[in-house]
């Protein structure tokens, strides 16, 4: 369970998150909203890239905001990025190894087993020793996912992981995201504009619009909520 209380983020004159209070119950949760709603800002706060003006993010009685930025990944906050950040000059194995050796602890053989295990899980064993710059965008997306879930994460933040993927690959991705809580024990939060992916992965979803929480609850209910429809297609009175 992730409890967010009264979280506000200000960029100059723009309030990207405005007193957001929200509890992610666990499992795989969705976080949706139109562009500029504050979804990635919320991820950036949890990752330590953005310092909020107020609020708390509490997991297991620990306030994430009290931790140094690099320590959060070591504690278990992992993420993917909208723009793929897999390290171009390293091999697929080294990319995932880099996260494991910094963010997780273990002996050399444990590390190797963990990395190979996650590569097999996401389907990258065939390209294990290829340098990333030689690989397709599809492979890079799955490298990002492998980097986010290797070891023992407590929270995995997926920021538009399906961007640019063909439909059949999106289905494969959905299977992976769905199985993250069971496989790792982590809470997964998915941000995506592909509602079919959100529906396929998430039993519970929260909706942000202009930095405010619009709705939260079971995904099927939320997607039919009038306030959510208004946020996406605009209010008739507006």
């Amino acid at each position: 369970m992730i409890e967010i209380t009264d979280l506000s983020v200000q960029f100059g004159g723009v309030r990207s998150l405005d007193q957001v209070t929200l509890t992610f119950p666990g499992g795989t949760c969705g976080l949706i909203g139109p562009n500029g709603a504050g979804k990635t800002t919320l991820f950036n706060v949890m990752s330590g890239f953005v310092t909020p003006v107020s609020g708390r993010v509490v997991i297991d009685d620990i306030d994430l905001l009290d931790m140094p930025d690099y320590a959060r990944a070591r504690w278990g906050v992992r993420r993917t990025f909208q723009t793929v950040q897999a390290i171009e000059s390293l091999t697929v194995y080294e990319n995932v190894l880099t996260v494991h050796e910094h963010a997780a602890k273990g002996s050399r053989s444990d590390t190797q087993d963990a990395v190979d295990d996650v590569l097999a899980f996401v389907g990258l064993t065939d390209v294990r020793d290829k340098v990333v710059r030689t690989l397709s965008q599809r492979d890079r997306r799955f490298i990002e996912v492998a980097r986010a879930i290797v070891g023992a994460p407590r929270i995995v933040l997926f920021d538009e992981p399906a961007a640019g993927l063909p439909e059949e690959e999106t289905e494969h991705l959905a299977e992976i995201i769905r199985s993250v809580p069971e496989r790792t024990g982590a809470t997964a939060i998915l941000v995506d504009h592909d509602m079919s992916l959100v529906q396929a992965c998430c039993e519970w979803t929260a909706v942000l619009d202009f930095g405010r929480l619009v709705a939260a609850g079971p995904t099927a209910d939320v997607l039919h909520d009038e306030r959510v429809l208004a946020a996406y297609v605009g209010d008739e009175e507006a």
């Binding site: 690099y70 990944a73 990025f81 950040q85 050796e101």
Partner: peptide, 24 residues
């Protein structure tokens, strides 16, 4: 080894390096 991989990560993207637990 480990420092070289950390440097490669920092060189490409500091946010990504932070998200990997690297003490930049």
């Amino acid at each position: 080894s480990k420092p070289g991989r950390a440097w490669a990560s920092v060189s490409q993207s500091e946010p990504s390096a932070l998200a990997s637990g690297i003490n930049i």
